[in-house]
């Protein structure tokens, strides 16, 4: 079993097999459709531009399960959305990533790589944890996806190598990606 056994619908509703990405290093990420952690979109795009030619692809899976529940940071509670304009990596159709309705791909990914905690040095780790404890304590249980921008790194053979929580910025993943290229 590998990620190549799964498929997902693209933005046009066509079923795409992940086997189409055989031989590439992948990052599979659940994205917020519009709000929250949006700077990560830009950093992901930068990674895609930097490593794309060496056989690296990012697959974005928009999900509304965490929408409009922004934890904010200590400095400011975010009350705006940014237009994610100019993302060129493949973005699939909106779907669930946690719970019983989660897409099979995400059930597989979270089974392969469980939750090991947030990077507490990231400024959003504390408010995110508090928001989860207060509003969605059940999200903290088990290995499920905790929030937008949970990233899974896949090697050229389709193995799930590493899981990065929302508190790891895409930039901080560069070394791990390079090691697989």
């Amino acid at each position: 079993m590998s990620v190549y056994d799964f498929s997902a619908k693209n933005g046009k509703g066509e079923e795409i097999s992940l086997a189409d990405y055989k031989g590439k290093v992948l990052v599979i990420v659940n994205t917020a459709s519009k709000c929250g952690f949006t700077p990560q979109y830009e950093e992901l795009e930068e990674l895609y531009k930097t490593y794309g030619e060496r056989g690296f692809v990012i697959l974005g899976f928009p999900c509304n399960q965490f929408a409009a529940q922004e934890p904010g940071t200590d400095e400011e509670v975010q009350t705006f959305c940014r237009l994610n304009y100019g993302v060129t990596f493949p973005v699939f159709a909106k779907g669930d990533v946690r719970g019983e309705t989660a897409q099979p791909l995400f059930k597989y990914l979270t089974k392969e790589k469980g939750f090991k905690g947030f990077d507490e040095s990231h400024p959003v780790a504390k408010p995110l944890m508090e928001a989860l404890q207060k509003n969605f304590p059940e999200y903290l249980e088990g290995d499920s996806i905790k929030w937008n921008f949970t990233k899974f790194l896949i090697d050229r053979e389709g193995n799930v190598v590493e899981r990065f929580e929302p508190t790891t910025t895409p930039k901080a993943m560069a070394k791990a990606i390079e090691a697989l290229l």
Binding site: K34, C35, F80, C81, L83
Partner: peptide, 8 residues
């Protein structure tokens, strides 16, 4: 605004 922006 944007369509699916709750703050909007």
């Amino acid at each position: 605004s944007m369509t699916s922006c709750p703050w909007c």
